[in-house]
Design a protein around this nucleic acid. Structure first.
Lengths: 223, 223
DNA sequence: CGCGTTCGTTAGAAGTTATAACTCCCTCGG
DNA sequence: CCGAGGGAGTTATAACTTCTAACGAACGCG
């Protein structure tokens, strides 16, 4: 089994066209949002007529799903690169913020409004667990002292994680690392989401300061 | 000047049909999201043919804008009712959570993914300032001790608020009430948004506990 | 060199938003 | 009471969308 990436020249061409389609799709999403993504417009931009794209993606939803997967992959990579350089929560937070500001619509494609019926494919959930793995690693390195307590400091035993043992009691307090990771995730997403959505425009303060403040609330020992 | 609400029977009928349209629209949004809202489908459900709806809303965007305004109004009302019953942050947090869980798509219509070009109309921003007014009231009643500090406890002077004085320096630390209100807003939105989007499904913990934990992080004195 | 897979094309169905033109009925003013 | 006007709803139509079907042509492998 040779390289699975590029085998025959046909598959090479196919992958290249697929990539170009996704590139134009990202352009459209950045300017008009994911709901306004038009296959016809993409085809016109690429100089070919509508239905040709269906050779590369079975339908519009599959294209969007692929973009979502790429976005997850991109976030996982930045997290991996950051944790490789040092497992500090502050660095991870700054990397997350840069990733979000770099392409707001990409952020919303991952963490924005969900489509009610949509179910993420299996490989997507695999990437999310990888992302949370990096986060948990940094949380474990940050030490057990966390500013957040579950039930006012219940001693969580073991990493109660993602279907850890089926039929687990959900009310049991999770591990300190998970509690810190959840606070990291929700607090930073809270600031980023509202900032990127423009809910802070017109208010006389700097969102970066608010973000730094929330990061500090996580990294500071909960004395 | 009589009641501006219902004057002639014609206007009464018009308002009633408008309300019925919005009702069907909410139904569609709840089941398929706002992007899948179809005027044709609504008209068919109401037993009349497509273009009739354009007598009541100039276009699809205006209908959605009206729904957004209603959602804001609904949140402002629940906040007003709650603060009238007692200006405690915990009660406000529980009211917010109930309002969000009551209709997730309504929540996302307000705080979800924004359309890049969209600008909220003036009356919408007026309602948002009202909502934040209730929140600030509760924050002021909660006392000056906040768990969050700007620049490690800078003494904010006066309510640096929403275009308070034009040309204000955005880097100046805002008031303690505003800092607490922002933490309330972002932290609770962080949990609610991810929970409603389904990012916690499959993880062995109760989102309500996480929410209560974050509320505790706000109401507890930052000793 | 041929044969088959794949690509891109046009045609077309079914859906959408939105406008134009027409009818009908209700309401308001004389 | 009665007529004129305006609002409501209708069909027809344009322009757009996703997506399927059928056809032709080009590319690459044996």
């Amino acid at each position: 089994m040779g390289e699975p990436g590029t085998r025959t020249p046909r598959e090479r061409y196919r992958a290249q066209v697929q990539e170009e389609i996704k590139q134009h799709a990202w352009g459209q999403i950045a300017t008009a949002g994911a709901s306004a993504l038009s296959l016809n417009a993409i085809a016109k931009q690429m100089g070919m007529s509508g239905p040709a794209l269906y050779r590369y993606f079975t339908n519009r939803d599959e294209l969007i799903t692929e973009l979502v997967k790429d976005a997850y992959r991109s976030l996982a990579d930045t997290f991996a690169a950051r944790t490789a350089a040092g497992t500090d929560l502050d660095g991870l937070a700054q990397a997350l913020r840069r990733w979000a500001l770099d392409d707001p619509q990409r952020y919303f494609l991952v963490y924005g409004t969900p489509v009610p019926g949509y179910e993420a494919p299996d490989d997507t959930t695999r990437i999310t667990t990888e992302i949370l793995g990096h986060l948990l690693e940094a949380c474990a390195a940050a030490g057990p002292r966390g500013p957040v307590g579950w039930h006012g400091d219940g001693a969580g035993d073991g990493p109660a994680w993602h279907g850890d043992r089926a039929g687990e009691d959900p009310t049991r307090p999770p591990s300190p690392e998970l509690r810190l990771a959840l606070a990291f995730w929700t607090r930073l997403h809270g600031v980023l989401s509202l900032e990127l959505a423009g809910h802070f425009t017109g208010m006389a303060f700097d969102p970066a300061e608010l973000y730094a403040d929330e990061v500090r609330s996580l990294t500071a020992a909960g004395h």
